[in-house]
Design a protein around this nucleic acid. Sequence first.
DNA 1: TTTTATTTTTAGACAAGACTAAAAATAATT
DNA 2: AATTATTTTTAGTCTTGTCTAAAAATAAAA
Lengths: 229, 229
Amino acid sequence: MKNKKEILSQAEENYLKAIFHISGQEKEKVSTNALAERMQTKASSITDMLKKLEEKKLVAYRKYKGCALTAKGEKIAVHIIRKHRLWETFLVNKLNFGWDEVHDVAEQLEHIRSLKLIDSIDELLNYPKYDPHGDPIPDKEGNINYQEYKINLSDTAVKSIVEVVSVDEDSLSLLQYLDEIKLKLGSRIEVLKKVSFDESVFVRIDNGNPLSLSKKVSSNIGVKFKSEK
Amino acid sequence: MKNKKEILSQAEENYLKAIFHISGQEKEKVSTNALAERMQTKASSITDMLKKLEEKKLVAYRKYKGCALTAKGEKIAVHIIRKHRLWETFLVNKLNFGWDEVHDVAEQLEHIRSLKLIDSIDELLNYPKYDPHGDPIPDKEGNINYQEYKINLSDTAVKSIVEVVSVDEDSLSLLQYLDEIKLKLGSRIEVLKKVSFDESVFVRIDNGNPLSLSKKVSSNIGVKFKSEK
DNA sequence: TTTTATTTTTAGACAAGACTAAAAATAATT
DNA sequence: AATTATTTTTAGTCTTGTCTAAAAATAAAA
């Protein structure tokens, strides 16, 4: 049985990518509703698509029990993510896009089918390991170099001093907000106070004035420790 | 009434492009069958699509009478062609693709929606006027600088000495064949003999050995005169 | 100018991917 | 364990872009 490469639609590719992202490094099962939320669509549409992807052996799916990517499905998902992150890097490094302008375009470019093209872009960029948001770029073989000591800003202890290494969410509004408060990759953050009531956190960014970040914001910022006390 | 930009599907964009190409510089009306041929689809599908494009004021269409682009439709078609040719130039000039490898990828890339992206690519390439096949690249405003003295090789007289300036067809098989016989942009061609029976033509390419080109091939090669006798 | 051939359009069907509304499972409460 | 709430699935509909087969226009030939 030869390795027949059937062509997937953009919709199918987007589902695989979404499942990969939601299930996370722990490869947890993904619920229909979680997928519907992420795909901005209705649960019934998800069910339809999961059946199709199951049919193609790209996801393992059992009614009412959620789904997970098969090895084949994960391989494809990782390749889409590789393309997405390489294109974002290209846009920022070669075409001087701002990091808050690249997401929508990369979302389109990630579906271009040409191994030669994406490998050439990779080469042109000199095989970058991380994209402009600090996320690891899978290599040609699909290996992902997860950063070791990265945790969410929302999980740091008071008095931690950390460095921003990633921004997990790609929404334009978040990126623009971070731009506004001058929070960028490499910023030094002091965790001043944590408010348990709403899980917000007071921080000082690059020795600026203290300001408060909501849980929603801080949980999307990946950081590495610089020192602790 | 504001200039509402409705988003076109790739299929719609491809139809506009095809109509533009078939109708040519003379802006002749395009028949349903001609379009069906080019789009590799059935005449009935063409009729359906023409109605839709008519509805959107992108083509002028009257039953049984063929169609033509409106100003609005032509503007969009030209923009797609601009993107196609800039991407082909990018692939060849920046990523070292061969001129026979770029068509399929450019066919995908031409549908990426981002003015900023394509204008950045244009800038990166230093505003090229012609693509790797010798075809003019429309500028940002949609102006196309048609080459003045270009004619088809099939229309040259015996003993003409011409220079190849374009290859009009994008089919992989043609480009690979030209590669094989070492016919490339800039090649010097002597027209040795024309066979009226099948309209084939004997030529000498860059002082090589004489060989015969079919009408189908020679009518896809654009040339400029170098001298005549 | 009839007849024949060709081109184009209509009518009806289908697959993909989405939706709504209702039914069936599963999970959470009492 | 019985009831209520939530999640997920089914069933049926819609749009886009395609198809086939048959009907209607137009063009070519006799």
